[in-house]
Simulated scan of single mutants.
Amino acid sequence: MGECGCGRSPNGKCIGWHGLSEEEYQEKLKEYVENNKGTD
């Protein structure tokens, strides 16, 4: 439930990234990584 099978979600949950183009995906991923730095 809520699992992502497309391999694009950084947290294992589907957040809708499978509909993005490769370029958009890279942007989102970069953004996500920036936003989640130091939250370990």
Score class of each variant (00 low, 15 high):
residue 1 M to V: 11
residue 1 M to D: 11
residue 1 M to E: 13
residue 1 M to Q: 12
residue 2 G to C: 13
residue 2 G to T: 15
residue 3 E to Y: 06
residue 3 E to K: 15
residue 3 E to T: 07
residue 4 C to G: 08
residue 6 C to P: 10
residue 6 C to G: 09
residue 7 G to L: 07
residue 7 G to D: 10
residue 7 G to I: 09
residue 8 R to E: 04
residue 8 R to F: 06
residue 8 R to Y: 09
residue 8 R to H: 08
residue 8 R to N: 11
residue 9 S to L: 04
residue 10 P to Q: 06
residue 10 P to E: 01
residue 11 N to Q: 01
residue 13 K to P: 00
residue 13 K to S: 04
residue 13 K to Q: 12
residue 13 K to L: 13
residue 16 G to K: 05
residue 16 G to V: 03
residue 16 G to D: 05
residue 18 H to T: 03
residue 20 L to T: 01
residue 20 L to E: 10
residue 20 L to M: 11
residue 21 S to G: 05
residue 21 S to T: 15
residue 22 E to G: 05
residue 22 E to C: 03
residue 23 E to N: 10
residue 23 E to C: 05
residue 23 E to Y: 05
residue 23 E to A: 14
residue 23 E to I: 08
residue 24 E to I: 05
residue 24 E to Q: 15
residue 24 E to H: 05
residue 24 E to P: 03
residue 25 Y to V: 06
residue 25 Y to G: 02
residue 25 Y to T: 03
residue 26 Q to L: 13
residue 26 Q to I: 10
residue 26 Q to R: 14
residue 27 E to R: 14
residue 28 K to T: 05
residue 28 K to N: 09
residue 28 K to W: 12
residue 29 L to Q: 03
residue 29 L to C: 02
residue 30 K to D: 10
residue 31 E to R: 09
residue 31 E to A: 13
residue 32 Y to F: 15
residue 32 Y to P: 00
residue 33 V to S: 10
residue 34 E to S: 06
residue 34 E to A: 07
residue 35 N to M: 10
residue 35 N to C: 00
residue 35 N to R: 15
residue 36 N to S: 07
residue 36 N to M: 02
residue 37 K to M: 13
residue 37 K to Q: 15
residue 38 G to R: 08
residue 38 G to P: 00
residue 38 G to K: 10
residue 39 T to V: 15
residue 39 T to P: 00
residue 39 T to S: 08
residue 39 T to H: 07
residue 40 D to M: 06
residue 40 D to F: 11
